[in-house]
Amino acid sequence: MVSVSPWLLEDGVLHLNHGSFGATPASVLEAQERVRRRMEANPTRYFVGDEYQHELDTARRVVADFVGADEAGLVFVNNATTGVNAVMRSLEPSLAPGDEILITDHEYNACVNAAVVSAERTGAQVVTARAPFPLESSQEIVDAVLGAVTDRTRVLLIDAVTSATGLVMPVAELASALEPDVAVLVDAAHGPGMIDFDVSALGVSYVTANCHKWMCAAKGAALLWVREDRREGVYPPVISHGYNGGWPSSSSHFHAQFDWTGTQDPSPWLTVPDALDAVAAMHPDGWSGVRKAIRELCLTGREILLDALGIDPPAPEDMIGSIASVPVPPADHSGSEIFDPLMDALADKHNILVPVFAWPDPPERLLRISAHLYNEESHYRTLATALLAELSA
């Protein structure tokens, strides 16, 4: 019997970089195409009638249930960066000169930029908490962040799982100490689908998350959730008909503003439920089994690399999901390259796709692995062999 992979990933390449762009099962892309065909068969009926709104509300219900959120507070956006921008722009009227937007030095660059621009427009300032890595416990993160809080801190922007260092951050602990005086905005690009993720249990004001990464939806699907007491005054980056209730027929003003920001392809949003079903079907225990399997594989892969490099774990296991970073020897190049030469060599010479970051600053750098259901232990052993070959070249 011929086995047909549910994934469309290129043969002959080791895809160890799920964390950057995700991967979408073929069946989900087929569902997306069906939506597009319905839309194009009669665009006027699709968008002006009830078809689009009904499908959007259905998808919202499914996604809200998956992430533990109330659907009244959940809207779709194109990516987590858009969600961060929506919140930061909406907070600007409440920011005054001298107010502080707190981030950590592990924060994703695109979202740092959103905070910087909001600070520039309001006279506020971005304050960076220096969080250690390597580290021995999440308490070090808590101490670093809370130690940077002042009476001028208005908002904390923090990852649920950091991009470069691959750390599961102690978001709930920080929110418990800061909310409601300091609004906590969680960039959960790597959250849902990777770790047990319950929005309502975090105690934060805002959560944005990608659906195209660990939920394996089509590219262009993400969510933004806003707690009930913060919803008034939150706007999408693009203001459209919903601002004055002109259209569409959404269930609330909050939904109406985000549900239609101009004509676009809504199929990534509408097929997130298909992605959730497709991935759940890949493991006998559904999503709980998926999360457990890929985390265990990631920890195994990290151990293989640590053994090969002869170094200690840079973070405890309880701070690891299904991405993990390990330090590699400093580079002897300028550090000005867009992509690290080691990353290029692994891709070009060994067909291994894995990111290498300059972190915290050149020449120091990290190599980050991901694990998903299309990976296996042998992939990380192949990476370790190739890595040692390149480091000794």
Rank of each mutant, 00 (worst) to 15 (best):
S94T: 13
S118H: 01
A96C: 10
V4I: 12
L16H: 04
V75Y: 06
L185V: 02
P132R: 01
M282C: 06
V4N: 07
L270I: 06
F258C: 01
V145H: 02
A110H: 13
R152H: 09
L223W: 02
A96N: 13
L297C: 10
L9H: 07
G220Q: 03
W287K: 02
N78Q: 10
A72E: 10
A115M: 12
K349N: 13
N78F: 05
R45C: 09
N109V: 15
G191P: 01
L156E: 03
Y380V: 14
S3M: 10
T82H: 08
S27G: 07
M194T: 04
A331L: 10
R302P: 14
E30I: 13
P355T: 02
D285M: 08
R61W: 05
D143N: 13
E136Q: 13
L373H: 05
G245V: 09
G73N: 07
L135E: 04
E100Y: 01
G68N: 00
W7L: 11
A324M: 08
P327V: 03
V149H: 05
D285A: 14
A23M: 04
E376I: 12
A315P: 01
P43F: 02
L185K: 07
S205Q: 03
S334C: 06
A96P: 04
G335W: 03
W7P: 11
P363I: 00
P355G: 14
L14Y: 09
V155I: 09
I101M: 03
G262N: 05
H106Q: 11
I103C: 14
A114T: 05
A164Y: 10
S392Q: 15
T82Q: 05
E40D: 11
P284G: 06
F254A: 06
T382E: 13
A31C: 08
